[in-house]
Design a protein around this nucleic acid. Structure first.
Lengths: 237, 237
DNA sequence: TTCTGGATTTGGTTCAGACCAAAATAACGG
DNA sequence: CCGTTATTTTGGTCTGAACCAAATCCAGAA
């Protein structure tokens, strides 16, 4: 019985059948028929329900995944990652497929060298700007989200301080991935006031080293912050 | 008759069979086995030649199309749109404003670490592919442009070997900048056959170190190639 | 020769089925 | 009650086949 539960989708539409599945599913997601962060039916189930082949469902899910509406885990299922209520920022495809560990690896490569370059290139004015960011960071008590935003800005300023456009472009990708990681992995859960204070000490030391143009010290502090991030990462199961 | 011209691809590799087709075709394109702007064999033909299903060939072509290496016209065929001479490729804004020195700095940061990661992540198949590129590089006598293209492909494969999408994305920016730099600075002026031979020795050592999974050795060879590039750079006024 | 119309080739889409590997779940033994 | 093992579920990949529509090719008519 391969007949036709579905009226007809084989007409007129651009890339018709797959598009039909995409439209159907994305509508259900946006309308929260499939709630955020919850599982949607298995591919085989969807194929049967919609009266199409599993292949077709897969292709539709591929595109939804690229759009950042769902996330898939082999053996587990497909999950909605679309938050209709919240700030909907476009996530780059790279960020989406970068895991927390891969992010840490990349940061471990870039950041220590980046701060070295920044130190020998930053103008006093840029350092002043940095200190302003630091002040705001030190004012934060418990607002994890605000703190992470400021961290991001702090890092971005350091990248700018290198004066290397290629490095800045690369680091922007890293920042995107980091923001994405923060959203999905829910760092904030573990970013307690005590830990924030710990980070503040790290960044304070980092800034002082930069202001003093102490390259090795700054590089070490940069690694320290990275290690703190890693600890936070390991807190999660 | 559907048997196996190709040894076996059904093992272990991440997305293996499709990847095999992608690698095979992109290598042929880069090495100009399929000349620029010319037709490549039909999907059905390729499927038969490579011993895979047409579906698989299609998926590979999809990705090559996304990379901008080919263009397809229904009823007509698939055509190479990759110009190894670099005549009219869109240069990213970053590449445009990145200087040769800044490029070298960035490569110095990324490449030695990249090859480390690649060594512990590359599958034997990926290493085989790498050796194939190397062979083509060693066959080059005096064609500087072709050699640089192959270098680029060699590096790209190493970046892919890390399995880190974020790193790959970053390194793609580096490659763009490098290509741009090559065009403007006219490396080829100084890329004499003698120097090409020098590079070939460097890459040969690099590959052997990778194949032997000798991390430190590989990292050193990677730096060596970089230094050779720097020398070439200094030749220019 | 030129034009026209069908046959052929080529990419585009969908289907149905098979097998794999990772994850989750159930069953079992301590 | 917990830990371990077997089973099932789920996404991931590949195959082979069929049909469509756009381009192209080619033979026959004007």
């Amino acid at each position: 019985m391969p007949s036709s539960p579905r009226p007809n989708a084989l007409q007129s539409l651009p890339g018709s059948t797959v598009q039909y599945v995409i439209d159907t599913l994305s509508t259900r997601i946006v309308s929260q028929e499939y709630a955020a962060e919850e599982r949607l039916p298995s591919e085989r189930q969807l194929a049967q329900d919609l009266g199409v082949a599993r292949n077709t469902v897969r292709e539709a899910l591929d595109q939804l995944e690229e759009r950042g509406m769902i996330r898939r885990r082999a053996g587990s299922g497909s999950f909605v990652t679309y938050d209709p209520t919240g700030a909907r920022e476009a996530i780059s495809p790279v960020a989406a497929e970068t895991g927390p560990l891969q992010l840490q690896v990349m940061r471990g490569i870039l950041e220590p060298e980046m701060v070295r370059l920044a130190i020998v290139n930053m103008s006093p004015r840029q350092i002043d700007d940095l200190s302003e960011i630091l002040s705001k960071m030190e004012a934060v008590q418990a607002d994890a989200t605000a703190f992470v935003r400021l961290e991001e800005e702090f890092h971005r300023r350091i990248a700018e301080g290198t004066g290397n456009p290629l490095l800045m472009a690369c680091y922007n990708l890293v920042i995107d991935a980091r923001r994405q990681s923060f959203r999905t992995a829910m760092y904030r859960r573990h970013l307690t006031p005590a830990r924030i204070a710990e980070y503040q000490r790290g960044y304070n030391g980092l800034f002082n080293a930069i202001a003093a143009r102490d390259i090795e010290e700054a590089s070490e502090f940069m690694k320290l912050v990275l290690i703190q991030d890693q600890k936070l990462l390991l807190q999660e199961t």
